[in-house]
């Protein structure tokens, strides 16, 4: 079973994402702020990381850059969730190696399909 980490500071969104991905048959780990997320990313291996950009303490960008600079973890797909479409944030994200951007508001089913694709790609 593929294992996914969701990092999101808005409790409700975290819950919805957790419910959805569990329903899709993944093993889901959650983090309610950037610090928790960072700890989990450091200690465990995931098949995909879904993280919000703006979180207290540690932002999604920092998590992304940690993952992409780690020799073993760097192939883990990282999807960034962002409420704001600031051009330079997007550019920074992709230059740090983000696999995809999700903008709020988004379609949950579409997200689920995307995640399926990234997890599958990564399995090879």
């Amino acid at each position: 079973m593929s294992k996914i980490l969701i990092a999101e500071d808005e409790v409700l969104m975290l819950k919805a994402l957790e419910f959805k991905l569990k329903k899709d048959g993944y093993q889901v780990d959650v983090a309610a702020d950037g610090r928790q997320a960072m700890e989990k990313v450091k200690n465990e291996t995931y098949d995909l990381i879904l993280t919000d950009i703006m979180m207290p303490f540690v932002g999604g960008m920092e998590i992304l850059s940690y993952v992409k600079n780690d020799p073993i973890k760097k192939h883990t797909p990282v999807l960034l969730i962002s409420a704001v479409g600031l051009e330079n944030i997007v550019l920074e994200g992709f230059s740090l190696g983000a696999d995809d951007f999700i903008y709020k508001p988004f379609n949950l089913n579409e997200l689920s399909v995307r995640i399926k694709r990234y997890v599958k790609q990564n399995a090879f």
Binding site: E10, L12, M13, A16, K104, P105, F106, N107, L108, N109, E110
Partner: peptide, 14 residues
């Protein structure tokens, strides 16, 4: 809470 979900999703959810 309804507003939060309404605001963050597209499609049939809202």
């Amino acid at each position: 809470e309804i507003i939060t979900y309404h605001k963050n999703f597209t499609g049939k959810i809202p």
